[in-house]
């Protein structure tokens, strides 16, 4: 079954019918937001059933759109989140990525400003490495980007998309070794993005990010995961009742090849590994469970088929 990521937007009234339908079709709801009278569902559904969901949602005022980033967790890295730059362009970047379905985390570096003194500490590095992709929101001058970026990317193993005021071509020229994506015309900006050309740049950024993530997905497809992250999320939601008390918007965050479970590692890591997924296969068999550098969460990395010889 091939899953496609979609966003369903509709009214609260009878939305449980859509939820049931998605679950019956074997799809997964990765995120659910209820804002006043509106419901937004980020889900992964079987490709052939998208039209059916659209039809069922229609009389309820529901709208189905393809959201390429559903099921990904992206770090928006900004050299500084200080009051100096308010309103922050990183906020617009994160907002746009969320609209495309991603779960974003803002990473404001402690010592990221200045071109000579910029650096990345180990905690920041490890936190960024727990994501599927990092978007570096950089500034206006080529000379600065050239000098500081090597320090900011030190030790980062996940794909990187760089944004900055110089054109993408210029960014490509100054960033060495190359990264997975470049978005130009998106540098320091002291107002909220609202002009059409600014919004077009943000759309371009989303495209660039999804392109970079597609490359990552393709690489994973060559050696598929032992279990799909969305399925594992479903299992955890079902078998760990404590997860329902967690007040985070996404108590279990789905990533391309893993999960972030927002429960304390010390208390739950062991029982999490023992959860049975199907016919005696436990979470511990198909995934590694690590303490996350983000608070005291649990970070689950799903092993590929080649390591486990299992597929559930």
């Amino acid at each position: 079954m091939i899953f496609v990521p979609i966003t369903y937007k509709g009214g609260v009234y009878r939305h449980d019918q859509v939820v049931d339908l998605i679950e019956d079709l074997g799809g997964y709801i990765v995120q659910k937001h209820m804002i006043a009278q509106e419901v937004v569902l980020q889900c992964l559904v079987p490709r052939e059933d998208v039209d059916l969901i659209r039809e069922v949602g229609k009389p309820l005022g529901g709208e189905v759109t393809v959201a390429p980033l559903v099921g990904t967790e992206i770090a928006v890295v900004s050299p500084s989140l200080e009051i100096h730059h308010l309103p922050h362009v990183s906020c617009d970047v994160a907002e746009y990525l969320r609209r495309a379905g991603a779960k974003t985390n803002m990473v404001g570096l402690a010592r990221g400003f200045g071109k000579r003194i910029a650096n990345l500490n180990t905690e920041e590095r490890d936190v960024i490495n727990e994501h599927d992709l990092a978007v570096y929101v950089l500034g206006s001058f080529e000379a600065c980007i050239k000098e500081k970026f090597p320090a900011l990317r030190k030790g980062i193993k996940v794909p990187i998309v760089v944004t900055g005021a110089p054109e993408a071509e210029r960014l490509k020229a100054v960033v060495a070794p190359p990264v997975e994506g470049y978005v130009g015309d998106l540098g320091r900006c002291m107002h909220r993005t609202k002009k059409p050309e600014e919004l077009a740049t943000l759309d371009e950024m989303v495209e660039e990010v999804s392109r970079a993530l597609d490359e990552r997905r393709e690489a994973i497809a060559k050696d598929p995961l032992s279990v799909s992250p969305a399925r594992l999320m479903d299992v955890i939601m079902e078998k760990v009742p404590e997860i329902h008390i967690v007040t985070h918007p996404t108590p279990v965050t789905v990533q391309i090849a893993g999960l972030r479970v927002k429960l304390p590692y010390e208390k739950y890591a062991e029982s999490l590994q023992e959860i049975e997924i199907e016919e005696g296969v436990t979470v511990g068999d198909v995934a590694e469970v690590f303490p996350s550098r983000m608070r005291n969460y649990i970070w689950v990395r799903i092993k590929p088929f080649s390591e486990t010889n299992l597929m559930v």
């Binding site: 206006s140 000379a143 005021a165 110089p166 320091r188 900006c189 002291m190």
Partner: peptide
């Protein structure tokens, strides 16, 4: 500014 793009950005920033 020696950089044309940087100059444009700073014009906007200063104006804002």
């Amino acid at each position: 500014s020696p950089e044309e793009r940087g100059k444009q950005t700073y014009e906007e920033v200063a104006n804002d």
